[in-house]
């Protein structure tokens, strides 16, 4: 995916890859970093740093009428008023946010 984006942008060497990972995405950061080390070998991202933004779970509480972040994944309930809510607004992301490039051969 990174190689395709870099090729589409006219090439270059990847300095950093920025991901956004929600706490409910089912991704373990250490395992992902380990896999990244293996996957980047021989690619345009061989020297790249992996940056991960960890996104906590946030739900919409119908009683408080606002989006609230949860201190932990469960229970899926408003931390302020205890109202159970499955209306997840953040925490399921598994996204490639950005790629930092330098020019080839420098």
């Amino acid at each position: 995916m990174v190689e395709a984006e870099v090729a589409a942008a006219g090439g270059g060497r990847v300095e950093a890859v920025q991901l956004r990972i929600g706490q409910l995405a089912g991704v373990h950061e250490a395992a992902l970093r380990f896999a990244f080390e293996q996957a980047r070998e021989g690619s345009v991202a061989e020297q790249a740093t992996l940056c991960i933004t960890d996104l906590p779970v946030a739900v919409f509480c119908p009683r408080c009428d606002r989006i609230v972040e949860l201190p932990q994944i469960t229970p899926l309930a408003c931390p302020a008023c205890r109202q159970p809510t499955g209306d997840i607004r953040q925490g399921q992301e598994l996204e490639l946010e950005s790629i930092e490039l330098s020019e080839v051969g420098t």
Partner: peptide, 15 residues
């Protein structure tokens, strides 16, 4: 060092 500022490609795509 890089002979040109690093470029940031904003992708924001689901993996």
């Amino acid at each position: 060092v890089h002979a040109g500022l690093p470029r940031i490609l904003q992708v924001r795509t689901k993996i």
